[in-house]
Structure formats: structure tokens, C-alpha cells
Design a protein around this nucleic acid. Structure first.
Lengths: 205, 205
DNA sequence: GTCTATAAATGGATAGAC
DNA sequence: GTCTATCCATTTATAGAC
């Protein structure tokens, strides 16, 4: 019985993968169940065997992406001096945020948020909020070490995230720039860390 | 003849207004020409008399919003000390960015950017880019006055915008928070200005 | 469980009366 | 110019053979 269930689960995940690719490529409204079935190599009947409606399939796609996102945001480096650590975490987050898949999901959730309001919240909790919490934790540690001045770590983390990620991320979300080169990312992050350390570096009386 | 043309222009704008309301409320894909015609109080035949297709109507809606946006971003205050001026311009921009209409247009353009890539660029040029240029101009002036240290005004403006606007704007885009109160906006902007002045205040050797 | 075929509804777009 | 009525393609969703 367990083998049968596992096979069914595999098939279900396969459908979700194909559906996600379609939704990312064309958006929710422009993707039809027929298209998904065709690209799956199956039929619509099969889709409706696993999901009661297009909406339910879309929800499954987003929920699945939430899980993957949460796993990816767990790891973050712990070595080096203040500057290296700030740069490291900022680059890691930025690289993830502007990856094509992540951008696609964000556009989907932002664009279809009126129809699926609970999904937007769910996704935010699984993504941006986790990332922010990790940054706050790291910054709090740096404050305890005395390499950053004492301040509200949540505010500092939010400001650091905005400084380091928002500019590039925003431009990518709008499709105003192409995928930035590693040099561009490094320059942007470096400028953000400069400014952040000027504002939050240890006081020198 | 001119009167006839003016009447036709009025009717056209009326259609655009109704269509915008529909697109903002339900998105591009979920809005049908029948719905627009019904809410207009007219018929589909009339719509197609003014616009050759749904896509053309959508483009007209976004272009019209671009013009209105550009006009709104022209005014910015010129009085007070550094802190007051930074706070003033940040609050004005933030208030505009998170207004329901502006948010709606942004979500539309981000969400439908794959289908209408030129509109996303057009809208960015008319909105975010103009705002950033104004900020850079103001900050450049403050640097010349000596109340901010000398630095690249474009980088500084970008960082100030990210610090002051991104956090709240992002949360609103995701529908994670409700419309923030004036006190919340003031607090957020105040914290951003604090950090910005620590990083860009005049050097005290 | 998966397919083919099809139902039932709705979409964008057009023709023709007035 | 505006309406009613309609065309035709496509959509979601289902029924029934295998």
C-alpha cells in the first residue's frame, strides 16, 4: 500500500512541477489546464484526478514553492570579520531573490494576490520573513560582539536588507535590468555594507 | 468638429477609467470585455469602436496612468533643514507609492510584464526613475551646501530611497500589512533618516 | 488511473439594424 | 456611434470507455 501511495505522490509532484513551469512562464490567467496536461504528456482527466480545480492546483504549486524556499534560506555562513559576514549573507540572499524561479513566483504571488490573498501571506511568511529573521539574528550577534554599536537589531536588519537588496531586486521585478553580473552584485552589496557600517559601526569617542 | 472630437475624447477617457477600475480590481486576465462594457453601462460594440482589442485598451489604461503619475511626482518641498527636507520628500513619495491606485498599477504591470514588456519599462521610466532623479538632485544640492558629505549623489539617493521606502512598500505590495497609519510612516521615515544622516552627515574631524 | 470525447459556459471579436 | 445578436475559439470540468 505504501508503494502505491508513494507512486501517487510522485505523480502528484510531477504535475506540480509542470504546472509551476507553465504558471511561471505565462502567468495564472494565461495558463490553461489543457496546456498543463499537454506539457505533462498526460490528459486533463488525470489532472482532475489529483486536483479538484485549477485554483487548487495553483495553491499546491505555491505551497510547494514555499517549502523549497524555506529549506534554501536555512543555511548562512558564520565565518570572517563583520564586513565579510555582512557581504556574504547579503550576496546569498540577493542571488536567491533574483533567481529566475524566485522572481517568477514573486511576480505570480504579487499579481494574483487579489484572487489568492492567503497565499501571499503564506509565501511571505515562508520567504522574506524568515530571511529577515536570520539577518536580525546575525546582526544581534555582531552587536553583542561589540563590532556593531548597540541598536534595535530588527530595525537594523530591515535597513540592511533594504540597502543591500531592494535596489537590484526592485529593478529585476520590473524587468528594467537584465540579470546582473557577479561584479555588479558585489559592487552594489559593497556600497550597501559601506553605508551600513558608517551608520552602525562601533562608536569611536 | 472640435466639439465632436472633444465629446469622443471624453467618452474614450470614460472607458479608460472604467477599464482601469476593472483591471485594478481583478487583474488583466480575469477582466473580460463584457464585464467592462456592463460596468460602463454600454455594450461591447462601443468598446471595440474605441479600441481595436483588449490588449490595446490595457495599454491605453497603463499609458494614461503614466501621465498622471508623472504629473504627481513633479512637486517636492524645498524648505527646512536637512532632516526636515529628507523626511518631507520621503513621506511624500512613500504616501504616493502605497496609495491603492498606485499599488494596483504596480501589481498589474509587474504581474503582466511578461505579456507587455514594453509597458513595464515605460511605467518604470515614468515613475520610479523620475522619483529617483528628483531625490538625487535634492541630495546633490545638500552636498553642495555642505550639510551632507561629498559622495556620489546617485548612489546616495538610491540608498536613501531603499532605506526610506522599500520596507513599507514591499510589505504593501505583498499585502502583508494594511495601509500604515501616519504615525507608522513617520516612524519608519524617521529611522531611515537617522541612519542616512549617520552615514552621509558631514564629517567631523 | 488514465485516456477520449464532450458538455456547458465564457472569452474576444464582428455584423448589421437603427 | 451605439445597440442586439451572434460567431467561433477556448475554457474549465465531467462522463464513460478501457
Amino acid at each position: 500500500m505504501a508503494a502505491r501511495d508513494a507512486a501517487r505522490e510522485d505523480r502528484r509532484e510531477g504535475i506540480i512541477d509542470v504546472a509551476r513551469a507553465c504558471f511561471l512562464a505565462e502567468g495564472y490567467g494565461a495558463t490553461s489546464m489543457s496546456t498543463i496536461a499537454a506539457r505533462l504528456g498526460g490528459s486533463k482527466g488525470t489532472l482532475y484526478n489529483y486536483f479538484r480545480s485549477k485554483e487548487e492546483l495553483f495553491e499546491a504549486v505555491v505551497r510547494c514553492s514555499c517549502v523549497q524556499l524555506r529549506m534554501r534560506l536555512e543555511a548562512h555562513p558564520e565565518a570572517g570579520d563583520v564586513r565579510k559576514r555582512l557581504e556574504g549573507v547579503a550576496e546569498a540572499f540577493l542571488r536567491h531573490l533574483i533567481s529566475p524561479e524566485a522572481l517568477g513566483i514573486q511576480r505570480l504571488v504579487i499579481g494574483e494576490g487579489e484572487r489568492f490573498p492567503e497565499l501571499a501571506r503564506l509565501f511571505y511568511e515562508a520567504g522574506p520573513r524568515i530571511g529577515l529573521a536570520h539577518m536580525a539574528e546575525m546582526i544581534s550577534g555582531l552587536m553583542d560582539q561589540g563590532v556593531l554599536r548597540k541598536a534595535d537589531p530588527t530595525v537594523a536588519a530591515s535597513q540592511f536588507r533594504d540597502l543591500a537588496l531592494s535596489g537590484v531586486h526592485y529593478l529585476r521585478l520590473w524587468r528594467v535590468i537584465e540579470d546582473p553580473s557577479p561584479e555588479e552584485i558585489a559592487a552594489r552589496v559593497g556600497a550597501a555594507v559601506d553605508t551600513f557600517l558608517r551608520a552602525y559601526g562601533p562608536e569611536q569617542p
